[in-house]
Computed example of a mutant assay.
Amino acid sequence: MTDLPPLRDVINRHGLFATKALGQNFLFDEQLLDRIARVPGKLKGENVLEVGPGPGGLTRALLRAGANVTAIEMDKRCMPALAELSDAFPGQLTVIQGDATRIDPATLFEGPWHVAANLPYNVGTQLFTGWLSGQDWPPQWKSLTLMFQLEVAERIVAAPGTDAYGRLAVLAQWRASPRIAMKVHRSAFTPPPKVMSAIVHVEPGTMPEGVSARMLERVTEAAFGQRRKMLRQSLKGLPGALDALEALGIDAQRRAETLSVEEFVSIARVLTK
């Protein structure tokens, strides 16, 4: 590997700047980027999917860690800078110009992969819930290491009974283990976003038996769609849901945010049968 020029020099040379329309915020602190790349554990020889690499800050760190990176970038302006990284790390980096929401990662890798990304803010939650969905489990990804706005990160790891607890927490926790690996101050980005950020690390867990993932999604969608209402009101439009509450001994006067992840799973299991 040849020595790489500072990231700021790269973006200046290529005339790059972050655009709000693409949800871009660039990170230049290479020590911070190396810390993020260490969150998934040892990556030497591992396949890693990166979404929205921009000028390649995190990409550099992943490549330095020995990962084989496939990066999906929508912004054509970043292609020359990423091409330079491909030359600096022969055989380790594949760059795809396109929309990550329309690309199935399973078509990109022959074996399992990790995901590591400073996700564009405007598509981060959509991509995250997509990776968590589906009946097949464990998933083909081995871990997710993702940058979110701190508020979103707190929603992912939230406990029942808290203001942040909602559908995202249930979908993230019912068969996986998410944690906030580190917080990232807004001043670390260029341009600085208005809010703090955080790295969320997720590892797949055990799939509860007898539960349809789609049914759990329907239950949480109904329950949290009207979260200020009692369950007897929010779930009445879901066939069999109120009977399931009664069978499980769950008080229909409770609100969605008071139910544990396990209780939501139990409701979905009854409705799956």
Rank of each mutant, 00 (worst) to 15 (best):
D163G: 08
A164W: 11
A164M: 05
A164H: 11
Y165A: 06
G166M: 07
R167S: 15
R167L: 11
L168T: 05
V170C: 01
V170E: 02
L171N: 09
L171Y: 08
A172S: 15
Q173N: 10
Q173T: 02
W174M: 04
W174A: 00
W174R: 02
R175A: 07
A176K: 02
A176R: 08
S177C: 11
S177E: 11
P178A: 04
P178K: 08
P178S: 05
P178W: 12
R179S: 10
R179N: 05
R179P: 02
R179I: 03
I180P: 00
I180A: 11
I180Q: 09
A181D: 07
K183M: 03
V184N: 06
V184K: 06
R186E: 12
R186Q: 13
R186I: 02
R186W: 03
S187Q: 14
S187P: 01
A188I: 02
A188C: 12
A188Q: 10
P191F: 12
P191L: 10
P192Q: 05
P192T: 04
P193T: 03
K194Y: 01
V195L: 09
M196G: 10
M196V: 02
M196E: 15
S197H: 12
S197L: 04
S197Y: 13
A198S: 06
A198K: 09
V200W: 09
P204K: 11
P204N: 03
G205M: 10
G205A: 11
G205C: 08
T206R: 15
M207T: 03
P208V: 02
P208H: 04
E209R: 10
G210M: 05
G210F: 12
V211H: 09
V211E: 08
S212E: 06
S212R: 09
M215T: 08
L216Q: 04
L216V: 05
L216C: 06
E217F: 15
E217P: 11
E217A: 15
R218H: 10
V219E: 02
V219T: 02
T220P: 01
E221T: 14
E221R: 15
A222Q: 01
A222Y: 14
A223S: 04
A223I: 01
F224G: 01
F224S: 00
G225W: 11
G225S: 07
Q226M: 15
Q226C: 08
Q226V: 10
R228E: 01
R228C: 06
R228K: 14
R228P: 07
K229D: 06
M230R: 09
M230C: 00
M230D: 04
L231Q: 04
R232A: 03
R232E: 04
Q233M: 05
Q233T: 10
Q233Y: 08
S234L: 03
S234F: 14
L235Y: 10
L235K: 11
K236C: 13
G237R: 15
G237H: 12
L238Q: 06
P239T: 05
G240C: 09
A241D: 04
L242F: 13
D243P: 01
D243C: 00
A244Q: 09
A244E: 08
A244T: 07
E246T: 15
A247C: 05
A247L: 03
G249D: 06
G249M: 06
G249Y: 14
G249N: 09
G249I: 02
I250P: 14
I250F: 15
I250N: 11
I250W: 14
